[in-house]
Design a protein around this nucleic acid. Structure first.
Lengths: 207, 207
DNA sequence: GTCTATACTGAGATAGAC
DNA sequence: GTCTATCTCAGTATAGAC
């Protein structure tokens, strides 16, 4: 086969999305793709590296779009900083474009739900994250660095969970994530960023 | 050994917290606990069921405290509904009490990061979740049901991520989750719940 | 009722022939 | 580049000792 590598990537993407990363065995992938087990290790090295490539193929255009939107919003807002709503819009909304395959969100949800995204992001998306951190810092210059970083974490967690609830059968999951839901998340997180925190708050939670 | 079961539970809790669920093998647990491999299956049935028992032992007192706080706040607010800030305080803050062992948050973070919590919650915490959903519904009677449920998901995701960033080595992780951070999350999510959403919003994200 | 010893199946990984 | 054969280790199941 001339394009064993692509065949493996396509099949892995489909199965990772349908069954999850941990639950998908390399033997399942090779039987469906009609290739040999060792071919995966030859082309990708390991199951983890195969996942990285599957994810990267999908996420790179998303990150490209994220940065384009951020560039655009920064140009529109110049010389002032971009407001937090626009920054979060640039970060969140491109995820929802599922033009490549209808299984894309399912795959992203699986990866998030299995806790694999932070590690992949750390290895591959570090520069983009830095761009957004800088923009957020400029949008909220009065906010202490640590508080700001935690708000970013809250937002990442909320977005990850939004993508996760789709594939998992969860009693309260109301509907598939959609543009409407993503917009709701932008509003939710923006409002969260603007929340006033009371650093001196105390309570007796320990009975 | 008279208390093989407790020994397994303690060792599993420690190793699950230190290494994660998937990365901890049953053989690692038994060698550290000094028991036989089959003892795990005799007492717990499977690795998954062992995890359930480890988690339940930790989370049950948390859920008890959550409901106590909710009861208390409802009594204080009667005959009106409890405000969303108080509801989220009752839900989030009890998680941060780590009086049992210093590794507790690490364990919770791991479980969340590996996407195992939704399934455990579905199996064991359903009634408590219903209590809180009802309270939130009464606090925000004007909010459409679906929008409300998504806001709950955003909050759950943010909390899970807060607990997750501790064990994972993540470039931007600023500090360990603490009471201060948990209070920040309460403020963040409360503000998010109160955010005004614009259902008619549109944008051309597809280039 | 509890626990030990052992075997079974399937996973990811690897060496080496072609 | 590809494939066969094999290695190690995982979770699981069971028979039987105490």
């Amino acid at each position: 086969m001339i394009d064993t590598k692509s065949k493996i990537l396509d099949t892995a993407e489909s199965l990772f999305g349908k069954c999850g990363y941990a639950a998908t065995s390399l033997r399942h992938i090779i039987s469906e793709a009609g290739v040999n087990l060792a071919a995966i290790h030859y082309h990708f090295g390991s199951k983890q590296d195969l996942l990285d490539q599957v994810i990267l193929r999908k996420v790179r255009p998303i990150n490209k779009r994220r940065l384009e939107l951020l560039d655009q919003f920064e140009a529109e807002a110049a010389p002032g900083p971009v407001c937090i709503e626009k920054i979060l819009e640039a970060f969140i909304m491109p995820v929802m474009l599922s033009d490549r395959s209808p299984e894309f969100l399912k795959l992203m949800g699986r990866i998030h739900a299995e806790g694999l995204m932070p590690e992949i992001a750390r290895r591959h998306f570090h520069l983009m994250m830095e761009r957004f951190f800088t923009a957020i810092r400029q949008a909220m210059p009065e906010m202490p660095q640590e508080e700001l970083e935690w708000n970013v974490h809250f937002t990442l967690g909320a977005m990850a969970h939004m993508l996760s609830v789709q594939p998992v059968v969860f009693a309260e999951s109301p509907s598939k994530p959609s543009f409407k839901v993503a917009w709701q998340l932008v509003a939710f997180a923006s409002s969260g960023f603007r929340a006033a925190t009371d650093p001196e708050k105390e309570i007796e939670v320990n009975r």
